[in-house]
Simulated scan of single mutants.
Amino acid sequence: MESQRDAAPLGRFLTVADTAEVLNVSAQHVAELISSGELPAIRIGRSGPWRIEFPALEAFISGQYEEARRAALWHQAQLTELVEFSGAPMLRPVPPLG
């Protein structure tokens, strides 16, 4: 697996800075993801630095892809007319004569 080969030089755990580099975001953004619980991380010691396990980062990235895929599908569904879903034309009530 190519991602595992890429992780080898970094080791099992990534620093916040390493994680930010992999995600191409700021270290502050990674810290926010950790604080919100979106990105699992552990602390080394009581007040030591955060560490992100490489498989947890891969799972986070996969989850982000899945979330984007679902959002795109939902957006497509919002643009699709009901007529296309059912295959039958929609009937509208006819106002009474008189």
Results as ranks from 00 to 15, higher is better:
residue 13 F to A: 07
residue 70 R to W: 04
residue 66 E to Y: 06
residue 50 W to Q: 10
residue 77 A to Q: 13
residue 96 P to A: 07
residue 84 E to I: 11
residue 32 E to V: 06
residue 83 V to C: 04
residue 92 R to S: 02
residue 39 L to N: 10
residue 37 G to M: 10
residue 63 G to F: 13
residue 13 F to L: 05
residue 9 P to I: 03
residue 69 R to T: 10
residue 76 Q to Y: 11
residue 47 S to Q: 06
residue 14 L to W: 03
residue 52 I to W: 03
residue 24 N to I: 11
residue 12 R to L: 02
residue 25 V to A: 13
residue 25 V to S: 06
residue 73 L to N: 14
residue 8 A to K: 04
residue 97 L to C: 12
residue 81 E to W: 08
residue 81 E to A: 12
residue 98 G to R: 10
residue 43 R to M: 11
residue 59 A to D: 05
residue 1 M to C: 01
residue 7 A to Q: 03
residue 19 T to G: 05
residue 9 P to K: 02
residue 78 Q to G: 04
residue 78 Q to N: 07
residue 81 E to R: 10
residue 63 G to W: 04
residue 23 L to H: 07
residue 54 F to Q: 01
residue 1 M to V: 00
residue 47 S to G: 12
residue 72 A to M: 13
residue 97 L to M: 09
residue 97 L to Q: 11
residue 14 L to R: 01
residue 35 S to M: 09
residue 33 L to G: 06
residue 91 L to P: 01
residue 72 A to L: 14
residue 27 A to H: 10
residue 26 S to F: 09
residue 50 W to C: 08
residue 68 A to D: 13
residue 80 T to L: 07
residue 78 Q to K: 12
residue 55 P to G: 02
residue 83 V to T: 09
residue 73 L to P: 03
residue 72 A to C: 03
residue 79 L to F: 05
residue 21 E to V: 04
residue 96 P to H: 02
residue 69 R to F: 15
residue 33 L to I: 15
residue 40 P to G: 14
residue 7 A to Y: 00
residue 86 S to D: 06
residue 6 D to R: 00
residue 55 P to V: 01
residue 48 G to C: 15
residue 54 F to T: 00
residue 35 S to I: 15
residue 85 F to C: 09
residue 49 P to S: 13
residue 50 W to L: 07
residue 52 I to M: 08
residue 2 E to H: 00
residue 79 L to H: 08
residue 42 I to D: 14
residue 56 A to K: 05
residue 70 R to H: 06
residue 4 Q to A: 00
residue 58 E to N: 02
residue 60 F to E: 02
residue 78 Q to A: 04
residue 7 A to G: 02
residue 58 E to G: 00
residue 49 P to K: 10
residue 18 D to F: 14
residue 25 V to K: 13
residue 3 S to M: 13
residue 39 L to M: 08
residue 87 G to H: 14
residue 21 E to T: 07
residue 3 S to C: 05
residue 58 E to T: 00
residue 29 H to D: 14
residue 62 S to Y: 00
residue 31 A to C: 08
residue 63 G to K: 13
residue 98 G to M: 12
residue 26 S to W: 09
residue 48 G to I: 06
residue 33 L to A: 15
residue 21 E to I: 13
residue 76 Q to F: 12
residue 4 Q to F: 01
residue 61 I to G: 02
residue 4 Q to I: 00
residue 41 A to C: 07
residue 39 L to V: 13
residue 17 A to H: 15
residue 65 Y to R: 06
residue 34 I to D: 09
residue 89 P to N: 10
residue 12 R to D: 01
residue 13 F to D: 09
residue 11 G to T: 06
residue 46 R to T: 15
residue 13 F to N: 06
residue 7 A to N: 03
residue 93 P to D: 00
residue 43 R to A: 15
residue 20 A to W: 05
residue 37 G to R: 10
residue 51 R to G: 04
residue 17 A to G: 08
residue 25 V to E: 13
residue 56 A to I: 02
residue 62 S to F: 01
residue 59 A to S: 12
residue 67 E to N: 07
residue 62 S to G: 03
residue 50 W to M: 07
residue 93 P to C: 01
residue 28 Q to V: 05
residue 29 H to Y: 10
residue 18 D to Q: 11
residue 16 V to C: 10
residue 50 W to S: 15
residue 80 T to V: 12
residue 87 G to I: 11
residue 46 R to K: 04
residue 37 G to D: 07
residue 84 E to M: 08
residue 26 S to Y: 10
residue 84 E to D: 15
residue 48 G to L: 11
residue 65 Y to D: 12
residue 28 Q to G: 05
residue 90 M to C: 03
residue 78 Q to C: 09
